[in-house]
């Protein structure tokens, strides 16, 4: 195990962790399609606040 290997493993773990965390958080907010380029302008996407229903 050299330093590069350790760093590499750490990098993979960190990247995957951050990505997974982001997805989980978005799901909790109720966004079904994560990172959709149209998200903000899409009626399906909830705008991050307590929405009664997106009807």
């Amino acid at each position: 195990m050299n330093t590069a290997t350790v760093l590499g493993i750490a990098a993979i773990a960190l990247i995957l962790f951050l990505a997974a965390r982001y997805i989980v958080r978005e799901k909790k907010k109720g966004n079904t399609c994560i990172g959709c380029p149209y998200a903000d302008s899409c009626p399906k996407h909830r705008s991050g606040c307590n929405h009664p229903d997106n009807l």
């Binding site: 990247i15 982001y22 380029p37 903000d40």
Partner: peptide
């Protein structure tokens, strides 16, 4: 958003 998608869903 495209970059976010690439860095999360696509990445995983």
């Amino acid at each position: 958003a495209y970059i976010i998608k690439a860095a999360t869903i696509i990445l995983i």
